[in-house]
Amino acid sequence: MKPAPFSYERAASLEEAVAALAVAGDEDVRVIAGGQSLGPMLNLRMVRPTRLVDIHRIEALRAIDVLADGGVRIGACVTHAMLEDLPSGDRFPPGLAEVLRHVAGGIAYRAIRCRGTIGGSLAHADPAADWPSTLAALGATIELAGPSGRRSVPAGAFCLGLFETAIEPGEIVSAVVLPGSGIRRWGHRKHCRKAGEFAHAMAVCIERDGERLEVWLGSTGGAPVAIALDRAALAAIGGSEAQQRAGVREYIAAALPDAISPGDAYARHLHAQVAAEAVNDTLANRT
């Protein structure tokens, strides 16, 4: 279980990294940051790049900045552990740090969180990863740096499918930008058979002041999926806690796209179940 031969270079700056990505001939160049997904895939020879460009030492990509408009810019090489350990009492928009801490702290194991990065997770676009659905629900934009400068893609439109993203050849995820508006209530749930395992179902629900509930499902086998949740319908579901959860679950099950786990009743149930739990957590909690 050793990788096929490849050449390796370490970029000292984002500009250097972008320049290094300029592909010559039939070269297959890949960016490596924390290497927590790419490493095993290299060793299993599931990917066989001819060259790796290592960006994890680029200091500028490890910054977390609060922007003038109140938003937050997270560098692509910020690790899950750095987000898990976000100090409280900073100038983040209300609720945001709690969501980031919770989601980051639930990714795999601490050892993996210490190396794995938010940008790497997005670029890799494993459907079972936590960030694609979470950042979509948070209304984030993904910043890409390429040979012709920088551009931004809404997180909800970033992941296109299984290991597929909006990244164009020659581009690198440079940052994630989160909006400055506060989060009123939120919920994030996933179902794993064991701690740290890739989730079989995952859902996040974000409610901002005066806005609708953003419900996004992850672990769908493809890109994260948004579920339109009508407040009126939600309000109509009453009864005991169990009945309410069942009601929300049924509502979400009805809205679940047919393409998600077709023919697998349990998998479809789990998607609706964790989404109902995330919605219920949201309604029950106030940050």
Binding site: P40, L44, K194, A195, G196, F198
Partner: peptide
């Protein structure tokens, strides 16, 4: 054929 598919118990389990 990997430990992502063959699940071994960890401290959490």
């Amino acid at each position: 054929v990997t430990l992502a598919d063959y699940l071994l118990p960890g401290f959490g389990e």
